[in-house]
Design a protein around this nucleic acid. Structure first.
Lengths: 253, 253
DNA sequence: TGAATAGTGTCTATAAGACAATATCCC
DNA sequence: GGGATATTGTCTTATAGACACTATTCA
Protein backbone atom coordinates (compact mmCIF):
# COMPACT_ATOMS: atom_id res chain seq x y z
CA UNK A 1 0.00 0.00 0.00
CA UNK A 2 1.49 3.29 -0.98
CA UNK A 3 -0.48 5.26 1.56
CA UNK A 4 -0.43 5.06 5.31
CA UNK A 5 2.37 4.10 7.60
CA UNK A 6 2.10 0.42 8.34
CA UNK A 7 1.61 -2.38 5.91
CA UNK A 8 -1.24 -4.36 7.39
CA UNK A 9 -0.57 -8.08 7.67
CA UNK A 10 -3.84 -9.47 6.44
CA UNK A 11 -5.27 -12.46 8.25
CA UNK A 12 -6.52 -15.58 6.48
CA UNK A 13 -10.03 -14.48 7.34
CA UNK A 14 -9.48 -11.03 5.84
CA UNK A 15 -7.99 -12.53 2.70
CA UNK A 16 -11.04 -14.72 2.31
CA UNK A 17 -13.27 -11.69 2.71
CA UNK A 18 -11.37 -9.77 0.05
CA UNK A 19 -11.49 -12.68 -2.36
CA UNK A 20 -15.26 -12.86 -2.00
CA UNK A 21 -15.84 -9.11 -2.30
CA UNK A 22 -18.17 -8.21 -5.16
CA UNK A 23 -17.66 -4.63 -6.32
CA UNK A 24 -20.50 -4.85 -8.79
CA UNK A 25 -23.13 -5.45 -6.11
CA UNK A 26 -24.36 -1.87 -6.39
CA UNK A 27 -24.24 0.72 -9.20
CA UNK A 28 -21.20 2.99 -9.46
CA UNK A 29 -20.83 6.46 -10.92
CA UNK A 30 -18.46 7.26 -13.74
CA UNK A 31 -15.30 9.08 -12.68
CA UNK A 32 -13.47 11.44 -15.00
CA UNK A 33 -10.65 13.96 -14.82
CA UNK A 34 -10.73 17.39 -16.42
CA UNK A 35 -7.63 19.53 -16.70
CA UNK A 36 -7.50 23.31 -16.95
CA UNK A 37 -4.23 24.01 -18.74
CA UNK A 38 -3.48 27.59 -17.79
CA UNK A 39 -0.96 30.03 -19.18
CA UNK A 40 -0.38 33.78 -19.19
CA UNK A 41 0.10 35.58 -22.48
CA UNK A 42 0.00 39.33 -23.10
CA UNK A 43 -0.53 39.77 -19.38
CA UNK A 44 -3.79 37.84 -19.55
CA UNK A 45 -4.84 34.54 -18.08
CA UNK A 46 -5.62 31.92 -20.73
CA UNK A 47 -6.85 28.36 -20.86
CA UNK A 48 -6.76 25.66 -23.50
CA UNK A 49 -10.23 24.73 -24.71
CA UNK A 50 -11.33 22.00 -27.08
CA UNK A 51 -14.50 22.11 -29.12
CA UNK A 52 -16.60 19.05 -28.49
CA UNK A 53 -17.22 16.95 -31.59
CA UNK A 54 -19.63 14.54 -29.89
CA UNK A 55 -22.84 14.65 -27.96
CA UNK A 56 -23.59 15.87 -25.38
CA UNK A 57 -22.88 19.59 -25.61
CA UNK A 58 -21.58 19.09 -29.15
CA UNK A 59 -19.99 22.29 -30.43
CA UNK A 60 -19.42 23.73 -27.01
CA UNK A 61 -15.94 24.21 -25.63
CA UNK A 62 -14.53 22.06 -22.88
CA UNK A 63 -11.45 21.38 -20.85
CA UNK A 64 -9.35 18.40 -21.87
CA UNK A 65 -10.71 15.45 -19.97
CA UNK A 66 -11.48 11.77 -19.96
CA UNK A 67 -12.61 8.85 -17.88
CA UNK A 68 -10.12 7.36 -15.48
CA UNK A 69 -8.96 3.82 -15.91
CA UNK A 70 -9.45 1.33 -13.12
CA UNK A 71 -5.76 0.92 -12.36
CA UNK A 72 -4.77 4.52 -12.93
CA UNK A 73 -4.02 7.14 -10.26
CA UNK A 74 -5.92 10.41 -10.55
CA UNK A 75 -2.92 12.56 -11.32
CA UNK A 76 -1.73 9.98 -13.83
CA UNK A 77 -5.05 10.22 -15.61
CA UNK A 78 -4.76 14.00 -15.66
CA UNK A 79 -1.24 13.80 -17.08
CA UNK A 80 -2.39 11.31 -19.71
CA UNK A 81 -5.21 13.59 -20.84
CA UNK A 82 -2.84 16.54 -20.95
CA UNK A 83 -0.33 14.70 -23.09
CA UNK A 84 -3.03 13.37 -25.41
CA UNK A 85 -4.98 16.60 -25.93
CA UNK A 86 -2.30 19.25 -25.52
CA UNK A 87 0.94 17.41 -26.25
CA UNK A 88 2.28 18.72 -22.98
CA UNK A 89 4.29 16.75 -20.43
CA UNK A 90 6.32 17.53 -17.32
CA UNK A 91 4.33 20.53 -16.22
CA UNK A 92 3.11 21.70 -12.84
CA UNK A 93 -0.11 19.75 -12.31
CA UNK A 94 -2.24 19.63 -9.19
CA UNK A 95 -5.63 18.39 -8.17
CA UNK A 96 -8.13 21.21 -7.78
CA UNK A 97 -11.58 20.10 -6.68
CA UNK A 98 -14.05 17.34 -7.38
CA UNK A 99 -17.30 18.28 -9.06
CA UNK A 100 -20.09 15.79 -8.59
CA UNK A 101 -23.52 17.35 -8.84
CA UNK A 102 -25.83 14.51 -9.93
CA UNK A 103 -27.02 16.37 -13.04
CA UNK A 104 -23.76 17.93 -14.19
CA UNK A 105 -23.53 15.53 -17.14
CA UNK A 106 -26.71 14.58 -18.99
CA UNK A 107 -25.43 11.12 -19.94
CA UNK A 108 -25.19 9.60 -16.50
CA UNK A 109 -23.72 10.33 -13.12
CA UNK A 110 -20.22 11.59 -13.88
CA UNK A 111 -18.01 12.78 -11.05
CA UNK A 112 -15.01 14.70 -12.32
CA UNK A 113 -11.82 15.27 -10.41
CA UNK A 114 -10.74 18.63 -11.81
CA UNK A 115 -7.05 19.45 -12.06
CA UNK A 116 -5.15 22.53 -13.08
CA UNK A 117 -1.83 22.76 -14.84
CA UNK A 118 0.50 25.67 -15.49
CA UNK A 119 2.75 26.11 -18.49
CA UNK A 120 4.69 28.98 -20.10
CA UNK A 121 2.90 30.46 -23.09
CA UNK A 122 5.79 29.69 -25.42
CA UNK A 123 5.62 25.98 -24.61
CA UNK A 124 1.93 25.88 -25.28
CA UNK A 125 1.98 27.78 -28.56
CA UNK A 126 4.04 25.03 -30.15
CA UNK A 127 1.49 22.58 -31.45
CA UNK A 128 -1.80 24.25 -30.65
CA UNK A 129 -1.70 26.70 -33.53
CA UNK A 130 -3.19 24.89 -36.47
CA UNK A 131 -6.20 23.02 -35.16
CA UNK A 132 -9.49 24.86 -35.45
CA UNK A 133 -11.01 22.90 -32.57
CA UNK A 134 -8.39 24.16 -30.11
CA UNK A 135 -8.32 27.66 -28.67
CA UNK A 136 -6.13 29.37 -26.16
CA UNK A 137 -8.96 31.42 -24.75
CA UNK A 138 -8.75 34.45 -22.52
CA UNK A 139 -10.38 33.94 -19.14
CA UNK A 140 -12.65 36.84 -18.28
CA UNK A 141 -13.29 37.02 -14.56
CA UNK A 142 -16.47 38.95 -13.73
CA UNK A 143 -15.75 39.15 -10.01
CA UNK A 144 -13.04 40.50 -7.74
CA UNK A 145 -11.15 38.76 -5.00
CA UNK A 146 -11.54 35.06 -4.37
CA UNK A 147 -15.23 34.43 -4.86
CA UNK A 148 -14.67 31.58 -7.31
CA UNK A 149 -17.83 32.10 -9.32
CA UNK A 150 -18.09 31.03 -12.97
CA UNK A 151 -15.97 32.83 -15.54
CA UNK A 152 -16.22 33.34 -19.29
CA UNK A 153 -13.91 32.36 -22.13
CA UNK A 154 -13.20 34.73 -25.03
CA UNK A 155 -11.16 33.91 -28.11
CA UNK A 156 -8.71 36.11 -30.03
CA UNK A 157 -11.53 37.65 -32.06
CA UNK A 158 -13.43 38.64 -28.92
CA UNK A 159 -15.99 35.93 -29.53
CA UNK A 160 -17.29 34.24 -26.43
CA UNK A 161 -16.81 30.47 -26.43
CA UNK A 162 -19.77 28.73 -24.81
CA UNK A 163 -18.49 26.27 -22.25
CA UNK A 164 -19.67 22.69 -21.94
CA UNK A 165 -21.10 21.08 -18.79
CA UNK A 166 -20.06 22.97 -15.64
CA UNK A 167 -16.69 23.97 -17.02
CA UNK A 168 -17.35 27.68 -16.44
CA UNK A 169 -17.69 26.88 -12.75
CA UNK A 170 -14.59 24.68 -12.78
CA UNK A 171 -12.60 27.51 -14.35
CA UNK A 172 -13.93 29.91 -11.72
CA UNK A 173 -12.59 27.59 -9.05
CA UNK A 174 -9.26 27.45 -10.89
CA UNK A 175 -8.92 31.22 -10.78
CA UNK A 176 -9.93 31.27 -7.13
CA UNK A 177 -7.35 28.65 -6.23
CA UNK A 178 -4.56 30.25 -8.22
CA UNK A 179 -5.23 33.60 -6.58
CA UNK A 180 -5.13 31.96 -3.19
CA UNK A 181 -1.92 30.05 -3.84
CA UNK A 182 0.04 32.79 -5.53
CA UNK A 183 0.89 34.50 -2.26
CA UNK A 184 2.69 31.64 -0.65
CA UNK A 185 3.51 29.21 -3.44
CA UNK A 186 6.05 29.80 -6.17
CA UNK A 187 3.49 29.53 -8.94
CA UNK A 188 4.58 32.45 -11.07
CA UNK A 189 7.69 30.67 -12.22
CA UNK A 190 5.68 27.83 -13.75
CA UNK A 191 4.16 30.32 -16.15
CA UNK A 192 7.44 31.85 -17.31
CA UNK A 193 10.41 30.69 -19.35
CA UNK A 194 13.66 29.73 -17.61
CA UNK A 195 14.88 33.30 -17.58
CA UNK A 196 12.60 36.25 -17.00
CA UNK A 197 12.62 39.83 -15.83
CA UNK A 198 10.97 41.01 -12.66
CA UNK A 199 8.51 42.99 -14.75
CA UNK A 200 7.45 39.82 -16.54
CA UNK A 201 7.00 38.07 -13.22
CA UNK A 202 4.94 40.97 -11.96
CA UNK A 203 2.75 40.88 -15.07
CA UNK A 204 2.11 37.19 -14.47
CA UNK A 205 1.14 37.87 -10.88
CA UNK A 206 -1.15 40.69 -11.99
CA UNK A 207 -2.80 38.50 -14.60
CA UNK A 208 -3.53 35.81 -12.05
CA UNK A 209 -4.69 38.19 -9.34
CA UNK A 210 -6.65 40.42 -11.70
CA UNK A 211 -5.31 43.60 -10.16
CA UNK A 212 -2.29 45.86 -10.37
CA UNK A 213 0.53 45.47 -7.89
CA UNK A 214 2.87 48.03 -6.48
CA UNK A 215 6.09 47.79 -8.41
CA UNK A 216 8.45 48.76 -5.63
CA UNK A 217 7.13 46.43 -3.01
CA UNK A 218 6.70 43.58 -5.49
CA UNK A 219 10.35 43.92 -6.37
CA UNK A 220 11.47 44.06 -2.79
CA UNK A 221 9.29 41.15 -1.77
CA UNK A 222 10.46 38.87 -4.58
CA UNK A 223 14.13 39.71 -4.10
CA UNK A 224 13.85 39.25 -0.34
CA UNK A 225 12.15 35.87 -0.78
CA UNK A 226 15.32 34.32 -2.10
CA UNK A 227 13.31 32.55 -4.77
CA UNK A 228 15.03 34.27 -7.67
CA UNK A 229 18.64 34.88 -8.48
CA UNK A 230 20.14 37.27 -11.00
CA UNK A 231 21.79 35.73 -14.04
CA UNK A 232 23.92 38.71 -15.05
CA UNK A 233 22.23 38.68 -18.44
CA UNK A 234 19.90 41.38 -19.70
CA UNK A 235 16.85 41.20 -21.90
CA UNK A 236 17.37 42.12 -25.55
CA UNK A 237 15.37 43.80 -28.30
CA UNK A 238 13.48 46.15 -26.07
CA UNK A 239 12.96 49.80 -26.84
CA UNK A 240 14.03 50.89 -23.40
CA UNK A 241 16.65 50.16 -20.82
CA UNK A 242 16.87 46.36 -20.66
CA UNK A 243 16.09 44.68 -17.39
CA UNK A 244 18.19 42.00 -15.81
CA UNK A 245 17.16 38.41 -16.36
CA UNK A 246 16.50 36.30 -13.28
CA UNK A 247 15.92 32.64 -12.80
CA UNK A 248 13.97 30.65 -10.25
CA UNK A 249 15.95 28.96 -7.53
CA UNK A 250 14.56 26.28 -5.28
CA UNK A 251 14.87 27.40 -1.71
CA UNK A 252 12.68 28.28 1.26
CA UNK A 253 10.21 25.82 2.71
CA UNK B 1 -24.09 24.68 -33.17
CA UNK B 2 -25.03 28.27 -32.52
CA UNK B 3 -22.51 30.17 -30.52
CA UNK B 4 -24.27 32.23 -27.92
CA UNK B 5 -26.90 30.09 -26.24
CA UNK B 6 -26.45 29.55 -22.55
CA UNK B 7 -28.91 26.92 -21.46
CA UNK B 8 -28.42 23.97 -23.76
CA UNK B 9 -31.61 23.26 -25.67
CA UNK B 10 -30.95 19.68 -26.56
CA UNK B 11 -31.62 18.73 -30.13
CA UNK B 12 -33.62 15.67 -31.16
CA UNK B 13 -30.34 14.07 -32.21
CA UNK B 14 -28.73 14.78 -28.85
CA UNK B 15 -31.74 13.42 -27.01
CA UNK B 16 -31.52 10.22 -29.04
CA UNK B 17 -27.84 9.96 -28.20
CA UNK B 18 -28.52 10.36 -24.50
CA UNK B 19 -31.30 7.79 -24.55
CA UNK B 20 -28.95 5.26 -26.13
CA UNK B 21 -26.02 6.00 -23.81
CA UNK B 22 -24.84 2.91 -21.94
CA UNK B 23 -22.98 3.81 -18.78
CA UNK B 24 -22.16 0.20 -18.03
CA UNK B 25 -20.09 -0.24 -21.18
CA UNK B 26 -16.87 0.00 -19.20
CA UNK B 27 -16.00 -0.73 -15.55
CA UNK B 28 -16.37 2.03 -12.98
CA UNK B 29 -14.59 2.62 -9.69
CA UNK B 30 -16.43 2.85 -6.40
CA UNK B 31 -16.76 6.38 -5.05
CA UNK B 32 -16.97 7.10 -1.34
CA UNK B 33 -16.88 10.08 0.97
CA UNK B 34 -14.90 10.25 4.19
CA UNK B 35 -15.41 13.01 6.71
CA UNK B 36 -12.88 14.27 9.24
CA UNK B 37 -15.01 15.75 12.00
CA UNK B 38 -12.64 18.11 13.77
CA UNK B 39 -12.91 19.91 17.05
CA UNK B 40 -10.62 21.61 19.54
CA UNK B 41 -10.72 20.57 23.18
CA UNK B 42 -8.19 21.42 25.89
CA UNK B 43 -6.32 23.47 23.30
CA UNK B 44 -5.73 20.36 21.20
CA UNK B 45 -6.94 19.37 17.77
CA UNK B 46 -9.18 16.30 17.83
CA UNK B 47 -10.98 14.10 15.37
CA UNK B 48 -13.82 11.62 15.64
CA UNK B 49 -12.70 8.08 14.84
CA UNK B 50 -14.71 4.90 14.53
CA UNK B 51 -13.32 1.44 15.05
CA UNK B 52 -13.98 -0.73 12.05
CA UNK B 53 -16.09 -3.79 12.80
CA UNK B 54 -15.75 -5.31 9.34
CA UNK B 55 -13.03 -6.36 6.98
CA UNK B 56 -10.85 -4.92 5.62
CA UNK B 57 -8.73 -3.26 8.30
CA UNK B 58 -11.03 -4.69 10.98
CA UNK B 59 -10.15 -3.23 14.36
CA UNK B 60 -8.38 -0.22 12.93
CA UNK B 61 -9.78 3.26 13.35
CA UNK B 62 -11.30 5.19 10.50
CA UNK B 63 -13.05 8.40 9.61
CA UNK B 64 -16.81 8.25 9.20
CA UNK B 65 -17.45 7.40 5.58
CA UNK B 66 -19.57 5.59 3.07
CA UNK B 67 -20.28 5.05 -0.56
CA UNK B 68 -22.12 7.77 -2.40
CA UNK B 69 -25.51 7.11 -3.87
CA UNK B 70 -26.07 7.58 -7.58
CA UNK B 71 -28.42 10.54 -7.19
CA UNK B 72 -26.65 12.15 -4.26
CA UNK B 73 -24.40 15.20 -4.35
CA UNK B 74 -20.97 14.82 -2.76
CA UNK B 75 -21.56 17.26 0.07
CA UNK B 76 -24.96 15.67 0.70
CA UNK B 77 -23.29 12.28 1.07
CA UNK B 78 -20.80 13.78 3.51
CA UNK B 79 -23.60 15.36 5.53
CA UNK B 80 -25.50 12.07 5.55
CA UNK B 81 -22.48 10.17 6.84
CA UNK B 82 -21.89 12.81 9.49
CA UNK B 83 -25.48 12.64 10.73
CA UNK B 84 -25.47 8.86 10.73
CA UNK B 85 -22.13 8.27 12.44
CA UNK B 86 -21.80 11.34 14.64
CA UNK B 87 -25.36 12.56 15.07
CA UNK B 88 -24.20 15.98 13.94
CA UNK B 89 -26.04 18.28 11.53
CA UNK B 90 -25.73 21.89 10.40
CA UNK B 91 -22.00 22.19 10.81
CA UNK B 92 -19.30 23.78 8.69
CA UNK B 93 -18.51 21.13 6.08
CA UNK B 94 -16.26 21.48 3.08
CA UNK B 95 -14.70 19.26 0.48
CA UNK B 96 -11.01 18.69 1.12
CA UNK B 97 -9.29 16.52 -1.47
CA UNK B 98 -9.95 13.38 -3.44
CA UNK B 99 -7.80 10.36 -2.69
CA UNK B 100 -7.66 7.83 -5.46
CA UNK B 101 -4.49 5.77 -5.45
CA UNK B 102 -5.43 2.48 -7.11
CA UNK B 103 -4.36 0.40 -4.11
CA UNK B 104 -5.68 2.54 -1.29
CA UNK B 105 -8.47 0.07 -0.55
CA UNK B 106 -7.77 -3.67 -0.80
CA UNK B 107 -11.35 -4.53 -1.79
CA UNK B 108 -11.46 -2.80 -5.13
CA UNK B 109 -10.76 0.57 -6.67
CA UNK B 110 -12.29 3.04 -4.24
CA UNK B 111 -11.91 6.75 -4.83
CA UNK B 112 -12.82 8.78 -1.79
CA UNK B 113 -13.79 12.41 -1.79
CA UNK B 114 -12.53 13.48 1.62
CA UNK B 115 -14.32 16.25 3.48
CA UNK B 116 -13.63 18.03 6.72
CA UNK B 117 -16.12 19.41 9.19
CA UNK B 118 -15.71 21.68 12.19
CA UNK B 119 -17.78 21.60 15.35
CA UNK B 120 -17.48 23.01 18.88
CA UNK B 121 -16.30 20.43 21.37
CA UNK B 122 -19.41 20.79 23.53
CA UNK B 123 -21.66 19.90 20.62
CA UNK B 124 -19.65 16.80 19.84
CA UNK B 125 -19.41 15.51 23.41
CA UNK B 126 -23.16 15.09 23.55
CA UNK B 127 -23.77 11.61 22.19
CA UNK B 128 -20.27 10.32 21.55
CA UNK B 129 -19.53 9.48 25.15
CA UNK B 130 -20.81 5.98 25.70
CA UNK B 131 -19.83 4.00 22.64
CA UNK B 132 -16.57 2.11 22.91
CA UNK B 133 -16.08 2.09 19.15
CA UNK B 134 -15.99 5.90 18.99
CA UNK B 135 -13.09 8.04 20.11
CA UNK B 136 -12.42 11.73 20.03
CA UNK B 137 -8.75 11.29 19.37
CA UNK B 138 -5.99 13.84 19.69
CA UNK B 139 -4.25 14.57 16.40
CA UNK B 140 -0.50 14.48 16.79
CA UNK B 141 1.26 16.34 14.02
CA UNK B 142 4.88 15.25 13.59
CA UNK B 143 5.78 18.11 11.25
CA UNK B 144 5.79 21.88 11.29
CA UNK B 145 4.26 24.32 8.87
CA UNK B 146 2.09 23.14 6.01
CA UNK B 147 3.76 19.98 4.80
CA UNK B 148 0.60 17.91 5.03
CA UNK B 149 2.28 14.60 5.77
CA UNK B 150 0.50 11.81 7.67
CA UNK B 151 -0.37 12.38 11.31
CA UNK B 152 -1.08 10.10 14.26
CA UNK B 153 -4.14 9.67 16.46
CA UNK B 154 -3.84 9.24 20.23
CA UNK B 155 -6.70 8.54 22.62
CA UNK B 156 -7.29 9.91 26.13
CA UNK B 157 -5.10 7.18 27.65
CA UNK B 158 -2.19 8.09 25.37
CA UNK B 159 -2.73 4.94 23.33
CA UNK B 160 -2.10 5.31 19.64
CA UNK B 161 -5.06 4.33 17.49
CA UNK B 162 -3.92 2.61 14.29
CA UNK B 163 -5.65 4.24 11.36
CA UNK B 164 -7.34 2.33 8.55
CA UNK B 165 -6.57 2.68 4.84
CA UNK B 166 -4.85 6.01 4.04
CA UNK B 167 -6.69 7.91 6.73
CA UNK B 168 -3.46 9.07 8.36
CA UNK B 169 -2.62 10.81 5.08
CA UNK B 170 -6.13 12.24 4.78
CA UNK B 171 -5.87 13.68 8.28
CA UNK B 172 -2.49 15.16 7.40
CA UNK B 173 -4.10 16.95 4.51
CA UNK B 174 -6.88 18.15 6.82
CA UNK B 175 -4.37 19.77 9.15
CA UNK B 176 -2.51 21.29 6.22
CA UNK B 177 -5.70 22.76 4.78
CA UNK B 178 -6.94 24.10 8.11
CA UNK B 179 -3.61 25.78 8.76
CA UNK B 180 -3.72 27.37 5.33
CA UNK B 181 -7.28 28.58 5.66
CA UNK B 182 -7.12 29.90 9.18
CA UNK B 183 -5.34 33.06 8.15
CA UNK B 184 -7.98 34.35 5.83
CA UNK B 185 -11.13 32.41 6.62
CA UNK B 186 -13.18 32.75 9.75
CA UNK B 187 -12.69 29.15 10.76
CA UNK B 188 -11.99 29.65 14.44
CA UNK B 189 -15.58 30.53 15.18
CA UNK B 190 -16.85 27.19 13.91
CA UNK B 191 -14.91 25.50 16.69
CA UNK B 192 -16.24 27.67 19.50
CA UNK B 193 -19.59 28.14 21.21
CA UNK B 194 -21.72 31.18 20.40
CA UNK B 195 -19.93 33.30 22.95
CA UNK B 196 -16.25 33.05 23.63
CA UNK B 197 -13.33 35.00 24.97
CA UNK B 198 -10.42 36.19 22.89
CA UNK B 199 -8.15 33.84 24.81
CA UNK B 200 -10.34 30.90 23.84
CA UNK B 201 -10.22 32.00 20.22
CA UNK B 202 -6.46 32.29 20.42
CA UNK B 203 -6.19 28.81 21.92
CA UNK B 204 -8.20 27.44 19.01
CA UNK B 205 -5.93 29.17 16.53
CA UNK B 206 -2.88 27.84 18.32
CA UNK B 207 -4.25 24.31 18.35
CA UNK B 208 -4.87 24.42 14.61
CA UNK B 209 -1.58 26.06 13.75
CA UNK B 210 0.45 23.99 16.19
CA UNK B 211 2.37 26.99 17.46
CA UNK B 212 2.02 29.80 19.96
CA UNK B 213 0.79 33.19 18.84
CA UNK B 214 1.60 36.62 20.14
CA UNK B 215 -1.21 37.67 22.45
CA UNK B 216 -1.04 41.38 21.76
CA UNK B 217 -1.03 41.22 18.02
CA UNK B 218 -3.60 38.41 17.92
CA UNK B 219 -5.93 40.61 19.96
CA UNK B 220 -5.32 43.64 17.77
CA UNK B 221 -5.73 41.67 14.58
CA UNK B 222 -9.00 40.02 15.58
CA UNK B 223 -10.51 43.21 16.92
CA UNK B 224 -9.45 45.13 13.81
CA UNK B 225 -10.93 42.49 11.53
CA UNK B 226 -14.45 43.41 12.54
CA UNK B 227 -15.31 39.72 12.75
CA UNK B 228 -16.13 39.79 16.44
CA UNK B 229 -18.20 42.08 18.55
CA UNK B 230 -18.27 42.44 22.32
CA UNK B 231 -21.38 41.22 24.09
CA UNK B 232 -20.93 43.16 27.32
CA UNK B 233 -20.97 39.87 29.23
CA UNK B 234 -18.03 38.37 31.04
CA UNK B 235 -16.98 34.80 31.56
CA UNK B 236 -17.83 33.27 34.94
CA UNK B 237 -16.28 30.76 37.31
CA UNK B 238 -12.69 31.57 36.51
CA UNK B 239 -10.04 32.01 39.13
CA UNK B 240 -8.78 35.24 37.64
CA UNK B 241 -10.09 38.43 36.14
CA UNK B 242 -12.93 37.38 33.81
CA UNK B 243 -12.55 38.23 30.16
CA UNK B 244 -15.25 39.78 28.07
CA UNK B 245 -17.34 37.42 25.93
CA UNK B 246 -17.40 38.12 22.21
CA UNK B 247 -19.51 36.73 19.43
CA UNK B 248 -18.85 36.19 15.77
CA UNK B 249 -20.38 38.69 13.38
CA UNK B 250 -20.67 38.16 9.66
CA UNK B 251 -18.85 40.95 7.88
CA UNK B 252 -15.85 41.53 5.62
CA UNK B 253 -15.44 39.86 2.24
C1' DT C 1 -3.61 40.00 50.14
C1' DG C 2 -1.87 37.13 46.42
C1' DA C 3 -2.35 34.42 42.21
C1' DA C 4 -3.66 34.65 37.71
C1' DT C 5 -5.18 36.43 33.59
C1' DA C 6 -7.52 40.67 31.20
C1' DG C 7 -6.79 44.68 28.99
C1' DT C 8 -4.13 49.14 27.76
C1' DG C 9 -0.21 51.89 26.33
C1' DT C 10 4.25 52.48 24.35
C1' DC C 11 8.34 51.46 21.86
C1' DT C 12 10.81 49.16 18.06
C1' DA C 13 11.44 46.49 13.89
C1' DT C 14 9.69 45.30 9.55
C1' DA C 15 7.13 45.60 5.27
C1' DA C 16 4.31 48.17 1.98
C1' DG C 17 3.19 52.20 -0.67
C1' DA C 18 4.49 56.63 -2.63
C1' DC C 19 7.65 59.20 -4.98
C1' DA C 20 11.92 61.18 -6.67
C1' DA C 21 16.39 60.72 -8.89
C1' DT C 22 19.44 58.53 -11.77
C1' DA C 23 20.81 54.74 -15.29
C1' DT C 24 20.63 52.58 -19.67
C1' DC C 25 18.93 51.07 -23.73
C1' DC C 26 16.87 52.06 -28.72
C1' DC C 27 15.35 55.31 -31.95
C1' DG D 1 18.62 64.11 -27.46
C1' DG D 2 14.02 61.97 -26.44
C1' DG D 3 11.19 58.16 -25.03
C1' DA D 4 10.72 54.49 -22.14
C1' DT D 5 11.57 51.50 -18.49
C1' DA D 6 15.16 49.78 -14.92
C1' DT D 7 17.13 50.42 -10.64
C1' DT D 8 18.23 52.70 -6.38
C1' DG D 9 17.20 55.51 -2.43
C1' DT D 10 14.29 57.97 0.83
C1' DC D 11 10.20 59.03 3.34
C1' DT D 12 5.72 57.80 5.33
C1' DT D 13 2.46 54.67 7.11
C1' DA D 14 0.62 50.30 8.82
C1' DT D 15 1.37 46.19 11.37
C1' DA D 16 3.65 42.72 14.40
C1' DG D 17 6.27 41.65 18.36
C1' DA D 18 8.03 42.83 22.88
C1' DC D 19 7.31 44.56 27.18
C1' DA D 20 5.61 47.20 31.04
C1' DC D 21 1.82 48.59 33.69
C1' DT D 22 -2.84 48.66 35.57
C1' DA D 23 -7.44 46.16 36.35
C1' DT D 24 -10.35 42.64 38.17
C1' DT D 25 -11.80 38.43 39.88
C1' DC D 26 -11.59 34.45 43.36
C1' DA D 27 -9.39 31.90 47.03
Amino acid sequence: MSHGDKQPKRSREERDFLAAYDASAFPHPSVAVDVALITVEDAELRVLLIQRDEHPDLGRWSLPGGFIQLDEALDAAAARVLARDAGVTDVWLEQLYTFGEPDRDPRTRVITVAHHALVPAATLRRGTEERSDRRLARIVVPWKGDRGEPVRAIDEDDVELPLAFDHAAILGTVVQRLRGKLDYAALGFELLPKRFTLRELQEVHEAVLGRRLNKDSFRRRILASGLVTATGQKEADVVHRPAELFRFVRRRR
